[in-house]
Design a protein around this nucleic acid. Structure first.
Lengths: 201, 201
DNA sequence: TTGTCGGCCGATCGCCGACAA
DNA sequence: TTGTCGGCGATCGGCCGACAA
């Protein structure tokens, strides 16, 4: 997924550490978000927090619900790599994503937007900056998406309260993302981490 | 699932051994029907056929596709229980299901039946013996299901060539089953057998 | 500027008898 | 007896401007 679109859908609350940054991994916190929490009293030798390096990040979206989630690979650090003062230190998130103001716009769908018998009322700013073509009608005039919008709403099963994100990328492509009001809780489809294989490395 | 309805949907080709009967279990054949075939050359000590007793049978249908499948629990027999002549012997299927002629009827859907703009033409025998109420019209007169039929076709995603089964149980209930033309191959949704846990018992 | 409403027109759904196999 | 067809009326989807917040 395009990282810009991903961040636009995830919202500002979702901060992702840059690649190669150092972070703490909390096994118990991870386990509590997984399907089955692990009782760590059985594993007293596992440290509650493990310094790691972020070796890779995948920006993904659920193929069914289109909800965005991220997959990060963490490599535990050796004892001599754990220097906190090292290049910004642990836990430091770079905020360079916010510097570049992307050409994106989000709107929460109104009742009229989500009605199956209507179009999508496009806010003026979005219409002027993001949209290539749309209907401009009514008295007073307003910007509207009509043909095709209903199909999109039905296919994605959108309801009033859900949000839609429009993003114009640097090379001119128009991307669309959605953000549902009823979040499915838990981060992603299933939390499929490698408890059984690589976690002990 | 009602065993009668299950058998009506599965068809005469699907024969299920009665509970407590003795059967041979073929690990390799089972494995070949599973998602991943197991290379049994790695396990030379596993017998190619294992005498078992059928300890339980569940008649089930896939919650999504409504395709019927059965789940059987097999208990391996001890050496002294393996007498072939014992109560009918191994591999003997009781055919008592066919004795009782159930009040059921199956029909393969025609193009007209599956069209979204129409009803279901009910064969005369089915109309007279199974159905409680239906439309009787046209010149010449014929038996038809109209209102509600389209919804059923759409919900179950039925197409021409699929079959529908009507069954009147002994206590008067009317059951409906379907049988798709495009079989999803493999028996059931996913072959979830206990390769990892109980297979060695 | 934009959310909601009622009107209206066309497309589709779904019930019908006619006909023929 | 029953599969297919064309027709038709009712319903629904979807685009419209009016109006008000």
């Amino acid at each position: 997924l395009d990282p810009q679109l991903w961040h636009a859908c995830a919202g500002g609350m979702a901060q992702i550490p840059p690649i190669n940054s150092k972070v703490y991994y909390f096994p118990q916190g991870h386990s509590e978000h997984a399907n089955k929490a692990v009782d760590f009293h059985e594993f007293p030798r596992i440290s509650p927090l493990i310094p790691c390096r972020v070796s890779s990040i995948s920006y993904l979206a659920d193929s069914e619900t289109d909800e965005v989630y991220a997959k990060m690979r963490l490599v535990p650090l050796g004892r001599n790599e754990c220097d906190v003062d090292d290049e910004g230190g642990l836990m430091g998130f770079s905020k360079n994503e916010e510097k570049e103001k992307p050409n994106s716009f989000a709107k929460t769908l109104t009742q009229s937007d989500a009605n199956n018998g209507g179009g999508f009322s496009v806010p003026r700013y979005c219409a002027e900056t993001i949209f290539p073509r749309h209907i401009y009608r009514g008295t007073p005039r307003r910007h509207l998406l009509t043909t095709g919008w209903s199909n999109f709403v039905n296919q994605k099963k959108l309801v009033a309260g859900d949000s839609i994100v429009f993003l114009r990328t640097e090379n001119g492509d128009l991307c669309v993302g959605i953000q549902r009001a009823k979040t499915g809780i838990s981060g992603g489809p299933e939390v499929v981490s490698g408890w059984s294989t690589g976690a002990a490395n």
